[in-house]
Design a protein around this nucleic acid. Structure first.
Lengths: 150, 150
DNA sequence: GTATATGCAAAGGGTTTGCACGGTT
DNA sequence: AACCGTGCAAACCCTTTGCATATAC
């Protein structure tokens, strides 16, 4: 998959700058990456890039449909490539691990909500809290609640 | 419902200060209230109360099980009384309205997640994005995305 | 060459923390 | 008297914004 970022940007009237392509690389490479993590990745190749640029680039990449973001937990949103099928994010409140599942697990649920409320839910856009298998088995956990994203 | 706040606080070794009872009142009265909104409510009766106190009080009230919070949208978390049955929060990305539904709408979904991932999901803890019935019908919407909580 | 992007630095919103005072027990 | 809780102010994190410079087209 991974569409040609430069081409997509041009098609929307944007310039394909090194920064934009690097940020897109980062989003492709890292999964569920926060702006901060993306910056760290980009810095390996281009140490001069600024965090504010990352924010602005992400906004552009999202507006042209190359990436999307999801709110997982309390911290920064995480960005991921927008091509593949939508998936849900599950964040463990114990260890902070994030797991994914194809979004179709939620269709029945979404239909029930639509039927009861007339509300068209987009379950994929927000992370879901809970405890992962490992932490369910383990006794005391690392982080009692929240914790940073990713 | 609405348990006796003072009694519960005492039972846990906390003092039942006016501030704590006022904050609890606010959470009972306002539904899905943010710390800022709670402060506004409390200020009507006690203008001297500080926002940091609201944060600290909410932490205490949550620790003794009187209130819980949920992350609805990007902004501040919202607090609600913890007595009644858990409910899910649906935030409309169009108008910002928040609707609720009993948490049992999600049990099938949660079971599916558990079966596939071993992950015990707590769907009630995070708000779910989507479009409400009104905004589905309406053409252009007020807020394109996010927007403040509640 | 020109409009767009970037880097930098400062500002802004939300939340947390240190500290001394005030109120309960 | 001892302690817990509060108000105040400062600090912190994350994100946005203004402005001058650099760059892709």
């Amino acid at each position: 998959m991974t569409p040609d970022g430069a081409e997509v940007l041009h098609r929307h009237g944007y310039r394909a700058t090194p920064q934009r392509l690097l940020v897109l690389d980062a989003v492709v490479e890292l999964r569920h990456a926060t702006p901060e993590q993306i910056l760290a990745y980009v810095h390996r190749r281009a140490p001069a890039v600024n965090l504010s640029t990352v924010y602005r680039v992400l906004e552009v990449l999202e507006s042209v449909g190359l990436v999307s973001h999801a709110h997982i937990g309390t911290g920064s949103p995480t960005y991921h490539v927008a091509d593949g099928p939508a998936h849900l994010h599950f964040r463990c409140t114990g260890c902070g691990r994030v797991q994914s599942l194809p979004a179709d697990v939620a269709v029945e649920f979404e239909e029930a909500v639509l039927a009861r409320l007339g509300f068209a839910a987009d379950v994929a856009h927000t992370g879901i809290y809970g405890r992962c298998a490992d932490c369910l088995a383990a006794p005391g956990a690392a982080t009692p609640d929240d914790g940073g994203p990713t």
